Simulated assay, not measured.
Amino acid sequence: ILTCQHKYYARIAQQKYVPEATPRFAIVSKEYRSDVEKLPFPLFIKPVKSYLSALARPLNTIDDLNYYLENVTIPEQFLIPFNWAVKNYTDYAFDGSYFIAEELLRGRQVTLEGYVFEGQVGLIGIVDSVMLPGTISFERFVYPSSLPMHVQEKMFSIAQRFVTGIGLDMSLFNIEFMYDDATDTVSIIEINPRMAAQFCDLFEMVNGVSNYDILHAIVNGKKPIVHTNGAFQVAASLVCRQLQDQRVMHAPTQQEIQAAQTRFPELRFYPWISAGDKLSDVLQDGTSFVYCWIHLGARNRQELDEKYQESKLLLPFVFERM
């Protein structure tokens, strides 16, 4: 688990078990930069231990890298439990205070969700990750993926070999992949030794089974059931964002939320902030500001878009520039 959670040592393990899916990488910090000279610019940088893409971004030049390392810091409180685990349960030379610089990947991004039960790796599903145009901020996650089936099969094969290689068992996991259709190559972005909680509603709407049910089965020593009869053909987690920090003057009331769920019974609403808050009061990715998630199911992607637009009207936020 700690191997997966530490992005640098996860890359070393990927290099061992699935080298064809592993981009070039180097560990860096304010004081340690020698290995990064092996990488071409532009490159991508992120903390070796992070949350929801916080502090992750592309860098175009060595000057950008130097500025990043001199000015970006990881909150100390966030790292305390992780660094304690690294110190007491591993022989790793690098704790969570470092960054990993990586070869920049291009293509279509997805997340593969799976599980391991008594050494057998199972597939739950693959979710498309859609970015806001011109940014690295997620605009929505849509299940099932629209990738060709041969690409999805290749991703699952990579997942099987890697998860088996590191010895992960009796657990859920998710792997973020990038598919470059120009070269027909699949690369691992990162792996997490847990479920992607944001996708639980999506799998329940389409597969008929929540990842919490799958986790419950594994914990109780039972082989999980992954698919029954879901109510929808497609589902999405819609990520509502602003591109600038603002103050929230109005957030949806309980009555407005109930009205939206009466209109769309499957709707799940997850606000990140409340009236009076600044968008920057919660941890963000550094390039935009999330204020809520809206989860919906539909017969197809067109209907999904229509339901999303109506849901935003039913769940109004009002912002004030600062």
Rank of each mutant, 00 (worst) to 15 (best):
V72I: 15
G286T: 04
Y308C: 09
R33L: 12
F264K: 11
T185H: 14
M149D: 08
Y98W: 04
D180S: 08
K16P: 06
E204M: 12
V110T: 15
S171N: 15
D64S: 01
V116N: 05
I12W: 00
M195V: 08
N211Q: 15
A10D: 13
K222F: 05
S280C: 13
P133C: 01
E31C: 00
M249F: 00
G125W: 06
D180H: 04
D180T: 08
Y9S: 05
E103M: 04
G230F: 06
V206E: 05
R301I: 12
F289T: 09
N71S: 14
Q120A: 14
L2S: 10
F203T: 04
N83Y: 00
S280F: 01
S274C: 03
L105Q: 14
S237R: 05
R57N: 03
M249T: 15
T61Y: 06
L168P: 09
A260H: 01
G107W: 13
L69F: 09
A259P: 00
I80Y: 00
G134I: 09
M322D: 01
S129F: 02
E76P: 00
S157C: 08
V219R: 08
A197G: 12
Q242D: 03
A54H: 10
N174G: 12
E37A: 15
I188A: 07
A260F: 02
N174F: 11
M170N: 15
I257N: 03
T228S: 10
F99Y: 13
S237M: 14
G208C: 11
R24G: 06
A235I: 12
P224G: 08
L52A: 14
Q5Y: 04
L202G: 03
D180G: 12
Q284R: 13
Q261E: 12
I80T: 02
G119C: 11
S311L: 04
E306I: 08
E113A: 11
A259N: 11
I1Y: 12
I62P: 00
E176M: 05
K49Q: 02
Q242H: 03
G134F: 14
V121A: 13
I27F: 01
Q309G: 08
E37T: 13
V28E: 03
A235D: 07
P144R: 02
T183I: 12
I100H: 03
R247G: 01
D91Q: 13
Y8V: 01
W272N: 13
